[in-house]
Write a protein that binds this DNA or RNA. Structure first.
Length: 749
DNA sequence: GTTCTCCGAATAC
DNA sequence: GTCTGACTTATTCGG
DNA sequence: CCGAATAAGTCAGACGTATTCGGAGAAC
């Protein structure tokens, strides 16, 4: 198979395909698509529909199409009015599936749905079902009936709060719950559920535990489902609302310290030791006496409080936030404290994330237990030989441009989204302004997938990512923009009221090039080439790198066989970068001079290290980067062990580093490691080769990862500062820059 | 009262 | 962004 | 042909640099 051969040829790591599994189906002029998160919300809303005085969202809102994530997303697409979806079953979207797998089964879908009730089905189908299966109201009704019946059958034996066990076999959503119908869900129930999940590693089991809890919530207190889901996801609202707590570790520690009469340093120390602030908080609470017992925490109030915290801004907001946190914390009991704090930290760390939550929700609503295995098979066939194409992978920032419109494009409502569904419209007024030059006359609406790249207009030269990142992030005004961007368009997802995601790439590309104009330095189509041999690919990769790109995206073109559409496409975007290739990427040998205590699953060993290169001219070790990936668990264990032998109390006076990077432990220069990286960058923080390329900036590494220990090298034989500088200067991007005379400052225009 | 500096947070990769 | 590790699912292989 | 072994695919969670944003508090 072609993909396999590409992979083995280039020795790439497992494919991290950029996935194209978007599904949009738009109504009228509305360019809208829901991503997975939105879908969840929608589902949830369905449950709430009765009680919904729903903070009805603006219906004109444009929602980014999630396309580049590996996970199965439920894309749905709605009529512009979400509410409609809630009620009108027929608008229900074909949950386009998401994983190639399940979507491949498109043809067999009917079969699946039929089978699903009696037959075993793989989980993807469950996911799918979760979306299709409908009207949740009915299910809720059913549950309600059950509840009724239960009540009649026998009187409920309420489970004590502390005994709540969602992992119970044959869990009964009503009898095994620890609260009664209509009551607010105790936060304790969620805490118990999370604890139970944390103790499990099997995903299916996790899903079943969580779904049990959700079943109870649905049956007893459906209006608490939405906050429950958000709390499990550690989110406060759909992603594109970008609502964040604005609070992180340090302030949390302060809050805990103040509540329990400890100093910040004590809390920090304890957190370091266990690697988990949540547990620290729990223990601190446990040993603490309180004068009176506050009323038990209710889930929805916790959620409301978190939201409140997120909304606080302005004067003294940090202090207000801390106060709010403290009032929650003081009211928490046992496990509650742990998960409360972890929620505030922004990571639950219980091995549960979006996909599993989605699945649990699906299971809970469908009341169907998950079964592994399944009868359906698809022939995963990946890159159909010869039928693939390579595109340059530009080193910039993803920009998905939405232009709504009916007869005419409505440029006033055009929007730009980042890869993480952030609305970046206000960041790119310049791109927005020149949209007209891109659209040909017959375009009334579209969604374009692009990469915004910093661009030197005068020399017609792509600039490094580092330059791009200096642009203002929000509310940029066009007059003060210093860094120009060229937008490289690589895909067209929607055109004139029609979703194209099911079309083969070849078709989309054709439409892209016929309906849109390339404009030098403003809009360009991503350079691409159809390849049929590895040699061709190799050569094209070289060209891309010389052209200041990161590498290539390899995709299937796949025109003729319509039946292959989405399914296949999704699986086959393959990222090919030069640093994945043996012997091509930059590798350097550096000295370990410090270590940082690991956190979470790295607690107890060093989780990261400070590295330095040797500068023989000044006889000093200059920090070059930290490193924390590329190690196996075993590596970490043994490396921590051996390094402890070299531990010293304080840094040598010939170590050069930035205070902010001070490690938890210092080591004598002894161990040399080989490190791979994607690029070298000018660093404000690291000291390597400082003065050689830039007067005061040093050099650091982009995407550093551990390769192996170099026992055969002494620290003095490590890569020298001069060599680092040479490597930096040898980069194509830097060379491309240097070749052209740099124009004197701001005369871009 | 205004400005400057520092640092945590958020977000690109 | 990179990377590993645990788990699930698909495929292959030997009796 | 079936069950066990192995390969491939997913997902979650460790960790990286560099930049801007915004609040806090000091300096002016």
């Amino acid at each position: 198979m072609a993909q396999r051969s590409i992979k083995s040829f280039f020795k790439v790591s497992p494919p991290k395909p950029i996935v194209d599994k978007t599904e949009i189906q738009v109504n009228g002029d509305e360019v809208a698509a829901l991503n997975g998160k939105e879908e969840k919300k929608k589902k949830v809303k369905r449950q709430r529909i009765e009680s919904s005085e729903s903070e009805s969202e603006s219906t004109n809102e444009q929602i980014p199409i999630k396309q580049e994530k590996q996970s199965p997303k439920l894309y749905a697409s709605p009529k512009s009015k979400k509410k409609k979806i809630l009620t009108e079953n027929k608008n229900e979207v074909k949950s386009p599936p998401l994983k190639a797998k399940s979507s491949t089964k498109e043809s067999q879908k009917k079969e699946v749905t039929e089978k699903i009730t009696k037959k075993e089905s793989p989980k993807h189908n469950l996911l799918e079902k979760a979306v299709k299966v409908e009207p949740k109201e009915e299910i809720v009704e059913k549950e309600k009936e059950n509840v009724q019946q239960e009540k009649e059958d026998k009187k409920e034996v309420k489970v004590a709060v502390t005994e709540y066990n969602p992992a119970k076999a044959n869990y009964d959503p009503v009898k095994d719950a620890c609260w009664s119908k209509g009551e607010e869900v105790p936060y304790y129930a969620l805490a118990k559920t999370l604890e139970s999940i944390e103790a499990t590693s099997a995903r299916l089991k996790i899903v079943s535990i969580l779904s049990n809890y959700y079943r109870s919530v649905i049956a007893l207190t459906p209006e608490d489902l939405l906050p429950s889901v958000y709390l499990c996801l550690n989110q406060l609202a759909p992603a594109y609302h970008s609502l964040e707590l604005g609070i992180a570790e340090t302030y949390l520690m302060k809050a805990i310290g103040q509540c329990t009469g400890r100093t910040l340093a004590q809390v920090r120390g304890a957190a370091h030791k266990t690697g988990d602030l949540g547990s620290v908080a729990e223990q601190a609470r446990a040993t603490q006496r309180t004068m009176f017992t506050p009323p038990p925490l209710k889930l929805r109030r916790v959620f409301a409080a978190l939201k409140e915290i997120a909304h606080m801004t302005g004067q003294a907001s940090v202090n207000k936030k801390i106060n709010k946190i403290q009032s929650l914390y003081v009211a928490s009991k046992n496990q509650e404290a742990k998960y409360l704090i972890r929620s505030l930290e922004g990571k639950l760390r219980i091995g549960l994330a979006e996909q599993s939550v989605l699945q649990a929700l699906a299971v809970a609503t469908a009341l169907t237990p998950p079964h592994p295995g399944g009868a359906l098979r698809d022939q995963p066939y990946l890159l159909d030989s010869k039928k693939f194409t390579c595109e340059w992978k530009y080193d910039g920032e993803r920009a998905q441009i939405h232009v709504p419109g009916d007869e005419q494009p409505d440029l006033g409502r055009a929007a730009i989204f980042s890869r993480n569904q952030e609305n970046n419209t206000s960041k790119y007024p310049d791109i927005l302004r020149r949209l007209p030059s891109l659209l040909k006359g017959d375009v009334s609406s579209c969604v374009l997938d692009c990469e915004a790249v910093a661009y030197d207009v005068r020399n017609k030269q792509i600039l490094p990512f580092q330059v791009l990142s200096t642009r203002k992030r929000k509310d940029a005004s066009e007059a003060e923009i210093k860094v120009q961007v060229c937008v490289f368009v690589f895909d067209l997802l929607y055109l004139n009221g029609r979703a194209l995601v099911r079309e083969p790439l070849a078709q989309r590309r054709r439409l892209l090039r016929t309906h849109f104009n390339a404009v030098e330095g403003e809009w360009q189509f991503a350079t691409s080439k159809d390849c049929s041999s590895m040699e061709e690919v190799q050569q094209f990769l070289d060209e891309a790198v010389r052209g200041s790109c990161e590498g290539l995206m390899v995709k299937t073109l796949n025109g003729e066989h319509a039946k292959y559409d989405i399914a296949r496409r999704s699986h086959n975007w393959l990222k090919l970068k030069k640093d994945y290739l043996d012997g091509v990427g930059d590798t350097i040998d550096v000295v370990v001079i410090g270590g940082y205590m690991g956190r979470g699953k790295r607690a107890g060993v060093f989780g990261g290290f400070l590295l330095a290169c040797y500068d023989p001219d000044n006889e000093e070790y200059q920090s070059i980067c930290k490193i924390g990936t590329g190690f196996s668990d075993e590596d970490l264990q043994t490396l921590s062990e051996t390094l402890k032998a070299h531990q010293i109390d304080a840094p040598r006076n010939y170590y050069r580093f930035e205070g902010a990077h001070s490690p938890d432990a210092w080591f004598a220069a002894a161990c040399v490691w080989e490190i791979r990286c994607a690029d070298l960058s000018l660093s404000p923080a690291h000291r390597a080769a400082a003065g050689l390329v830039d007067a005061d900036k040093g050099i650091s590494l982009r995407f550093p990862r551990f390769v192996r220990v170099r026992d055969d090298k002494s620290p003095e034989q490590a890569t020298s500062a001069r060599q680092v500088a040479q490597l930096y200067l040898a980069q194509d991007q830097v060379k491309n820059q240097a070749n052209k005379p740099t124009p004197k400052e701001d005369d871009f225009y």
